[in-house]
Nucleic acid binder design. Structure first.
Lengths: 296, 296
DNA sequence: AAAATGTTTTTTTAGGATAAAAGACAATAC
DNA sequence: GTATTGTCTTTTATCCTAAAAAAACATTTT
């Protein structure tokens, strides 16, 4: 097979949504900007819409013939790129399903199971191997190390080491650093969350990630910043499938963050150390508590 | 094209070397063991040797007909796997040639330059990106960040953090741990090096790597252990092309290692901290001193 | 003349084809 | 009966190719 047409399908769906609010479409270059794709793709979309009888397309006139229905959209499964499909399927396998540590698997087998080409899968596995959850074995085999208690402990050990160092580097930032402004903005966001926590608790993980990234950036060390990718991905997927006591957990985290922000603003290294360690300790406890039951 | 036959060519050369000392070859399974390849490959080698008139092969008899000459061996360039060629070419480009920070390059271009398929190259680049020296850009482009002073400082910052922690973990290892035995063996090796340093100073980098890996392993943290891969690769290639004052540098390092080993054996955390930091500080200085002249 | 459209060329991507290498099983020799 | 060889099947690594998407160029419309 050849390259998948997810760019086209996604843009097509977005274009249909766009059409719902208007009775004709703008010029091709304008559509390129609006949809974020090339003109080639825009023209493919227009041709497809004309063929489906949604618009009449003749040169510059692109008139809507009928209201686009639910059946005109490409289904959700088709609009995902192989990379997205792989990441989701793989993380589900790893975190939600909980693969036994030590399980071996071949690329071809996994590719067939997920329904993608071996090339895309291999690329993902190589990229993913730096997360320390899989290992390349001779003869193109991969070993799942499992999302174990050991993994969680090793991950949090590095996280605590890096974040404390970053937090202390944060304190040393000059008065003029934009990070202080960003920190203030985040404090406000956190306060907002504390009020509406019950309603929007799922969105908190996004704010959480931004908050910790802001701190890690203060280290001005690419290895520390990059390492947060590992943490962010694990937490993102892990919490997505373990929402059990998310509400209470996030309420606690918001308060810890606020104390942490307060400490940072005080520029007091001892206070920062205390607040940072307190928050990371509770984050570690949460992670450990929600480990898959199958592992020791 | 298809899979390269580097396994065959390498094994063929090794088999020729084997034949020089004997007048006939052993059984196929024995050759498999001796050469570390499958019987399929062994049989391909035997067939090739028979065709070249080096041996007469009939069932179990594999009699040498003539002394293998220099022309019978596959040339050095053909026996390297694409992965090896890529790694070497790329590191030369990066460290020896010194690419300007911010240089962009496409996969196809680089693949053509090195003379390998884009697939192999892409695989390498993805794996290599975790070293923090390159970055993937949209549209299959890659950006070289350059082997700059900043990179060296960021790298050594993490190294020092990780190694000190590992060294202190080493001290806590139980009396029965095999690491202590390994440490003793290494001490002996180091003493040997101190005597013959002038002759074998190039081999020291191998011992150096094993020594530091032994310490890092004590951390029992996969992220710390894995990170040493980055350091080892950088140092390996970097020193390979900057042998200027290798002799003196290694003499100093051997002595620092001996002091470091002594401190570890004393189980005295303060002494370990001092010895570890002293050695890492001088390693950092050496690295900084030998940075490409082109960068600031 | 400026902007849009029509057409062609280049680049990217994902998957597959193919030879290399490994492995499995059957047949044979010692 | 065990070790070795002959033959066949499976798996792997690499490169190639088709389609998708972007980009460039030419033409037309307002």
């Amino acid at each position: 097979m050849s390259k998948t047409s997810t760019v086209f399908k996604q843009a097509y769906n977005r274009c249909l949504a766009l059409l719902a609010a208007r009775d004709c479409l703008p010029s091709e270059p304008e559509l390129c900007l609006a949809l974020g794709v090339s003109r080639t793709t825009v023209r493919t979309i227009l041709a497809h819409m004309a063929e489906s009888g949604i618009i009449r397309w003749d040169k510059r006139s692109k008139v809507r013939l009928r209201e686009p229905g639910a059946g005109d959209f490409f289904p959700a499964g088709e609009t995902d790129s192989p990379a997205e499909i792989i990441e989701r399927s793989f993380m589900r396998l790893l975190l939600a399903q909980g693969v036994e540590p030590g399980t071996h698997i071949t690329e071809v087998e996994l590719a067939r199971e997920i329904g993608v080409g071996t090339g895309s899968l291999r690329e993902f596995l190589i990229r993913f191997s730096r997360f320390g959850l899989i290992e390349k074995r001779p003869n193109g085999r991969w070993m799942f190390k499992g999302f174990t208690r050991d993994f969680a402990l090793e991950l949090t050990e590095i996280r605590e080491m890096f974040e404390l160092r970053s937090a202390l580097a944060f304190v040393e930032l000059g008065e003029a650093s934009p990070a202080w402004v960003a920190l203030d903005a985040m404090e406000t966001e956190h306060v907002g969350f504390a009020d509406a926590i019950a309603l929007r608790y799922v969105d908190f993980s996004e704010l959480d990630e931004r908050f910790h990234r802001l701190i890690h950036n203060a280290s001005r060390n690419r290895f520390i910043v990059d390492f947060y990718d590992v943490i962010a991905m694990i937490f993102h997927y892990h919490y997505q499938w373990n929402k059990a006591d998310g509400r209470e957990r996030n309420a606690v985290a918001v308060n810890e963050h606020l104390a942490y922000i307060d400490a940072l603003k005080s520029r007091d290294r001892a206070r920062v150390t205390t607040a940072c360690q307190a928050h990371l300790k509770s984050a570690r406890a949460t992670l450990l508590r929600s480990l898959p039951r199958t592992v020791v």
